[in-house]
Write a protein that binds this DNA or RNA. Sequence first.
DNA 1: ATTAAATACGACTATTATAGTCGGGTATAA
DNA 2: TTATACCCGACTATAATAGTCGTATTTAAT
Lengths: 131, 131
Amino acid sequence: MLKLTRKLEYALIALRHMQTKGELLSTTKEISDMYTIPQELLAKTLQQMARLEYIDAVQGSHGGYRIHSSMSKISLTKFIEDLEGPMGMVDCSVASDCIQLNNCNIRQPINRINDNIRSIFSRINLSDITH
Amino acid sequence: MLKLTRKLEYALIALRHMQTKGELLSTTKEISDMYTIPQELLAKTLQQMARLEYIDAVQGSHGGYRIHSSMSKISLTKFIEDLEGPMGMVDCSVASDCIQLNNCNIRQPINRINDNIRSIFSRINLSDITH
DNA sequence: ATTAAATACGACTATTATAGTCGGGTATAA
DNA sequence: TTATACCCGACTATAATAGTCGTATTTAAT
């Protein structure tokens, strides 16, 4: 309940690590060794973040990743949804093929809570975590 | 990400249903039929809530459940944790056998967010959802 | 040129958590 | 005594997450 996925954990750990290194490049191996993260898994996450332009990738020998400068102002909501897709406490707030949509008696109150949570996450910047 | 389990959904739907019926008993079958919830699964959830004294169980033919009067002031945090166990964004905020506890560079900021979320859930009463 | 070290990426398997089922038991009103 | 309800633990199925593997590409250094 309410737990971050490993992917998000790894992503945040990596971002924070890169933040401390400024312009210097970090490699997948370096990070996976340091924090005991499965290398291939971290690699995929870093690749995804590079595609999303959270980080810059430098290819080839002596390559690596560095954090994208304008990244810190991103909200946690956007970050999570970029990496994992839409978040919502109940599916009907995301997709609408629930068999009981009309019957469901908790949709409105739950959706209100959902909005509350989203707005909290939206006020938290990535930099609050990786600072 | 951030999704309620079916068990919690079913529990909330059932509570809300019972709330509308005041002192009248509701049966598992009645609720599972009405909201298209697998009966056996709902049954287990209602039994658990009865053990936790969120609802009163009346056994035997013509039996059923009714909502426990003092229930509405319970916080969402307590409710969720009673039904599903401790909640936390990362495991280390719950158990402490993570292999990288000391190395981990995101624990503190994440735990701060965690506390924020918990306090939000704590300010929400069950009655806000089942009212 | 060749090699070594890095990113890129899709397909695959394994593990775990959630969801759902089943069988047998107990309580009680009619 | 029967029908209908709650009670409960063990089991299976499904889906989501986590992790692995193979292969290709890029680039610095030799």
